[in-house]
Design a protein around this nucleic acid. Structure first.
Lengths: 128, 128
DNA sequence: CTGAATCCCTCCGGATACTG
DNA sequence: CAGTATCCGGAGGGATTCAG
């Protein structure tokens, strides 16, 4: 039985939203090469706040994409690692990251063209 | 020159956020089979509001992923179609949609397990 | 070191009404 | 039919503080 993300009530749409959320693709990508500590992840995902990283990892753990292991040493040590399920989505997400990296120029160019061809003030640009 | 989505200042991260936003994957997927009118898209993306669909399509147009063609008939007719650049991202996005559809069961199961095992405060030694 | 808990403000996004 | 324009509640997300 195939579920259809185009159907309103299909719960798998939530799942699509989840993997597509802001930091998910980067977090999962960072874990591709093996387990990482919280601090390592925070440094890798440049610009992420502690709150958002924690929230992202908690969601991934709840959804069964990563495991969270606590080593009760001093200082505390927590490692995150992809599960089997988590590894199953690394392919599509990696493809998306690569696409963003390789096609940025084209998009930037398209934006400039679009914005210059839009004389009518859709956006005041110098308001406030 | 390779751009790195993990770098804070890299503009391609915005691009990653864009293709990962709520309705983008569904909209682009709907256009894979050919041009569609606004109303057709609205019906296909069950549950999308008119405002969000317009906003999504406008962003995609601005970024050069889709073209918007107006046929000044009565009533008005507007068609959206993927560009070359737009078609270049259909693969990764389709893979993501398929993943969401095929792995929903596993995730739902993981969620239930996680939620039941987290009554909070009951674990004495290995708590969070 | 790894969080949880607050405060606080922006902006997403739905509902509704109006236009060409 | 295909939008634009508002209003507005609530989620998203940053900064800061406290705790194990």
């Amino acid at each position: 039985m195939i579920r259809d993300v185009y159907l309103k009530m299909c719960p798998c749409r939530d799942l699509l939203d989840m993997v597509a959320s802001k930091w998910t693709a980067l977090a999962i990508g960072a874990l591709e090469d093996g387990p990482m500590r919280f601090g390592e992840l925070k440094r890798r995902l440049e610009g992420v706040s502690q709150k958002m990283l924690t929230q992202t990892l908690r969601t991934l753990e709840r959804d069964g994409l990563v495991t969270r292991t606590v080593y009760p040493s001093v200082p505390l040590r927590v490692e995150y690692e992809l599960t089997e399920l988590g590894r199953s989505v690394t392919g599509p997400l990696a493809a998306l990251r690569v696409w963003a990296q390789t096609n940025y120029e084209s998009v930037a160019e398209a934006r400039e063209t679009f914005d210059n061809a839009e004389p009518v003030g859709l956006e005041p640009a110098i308001s406030r």
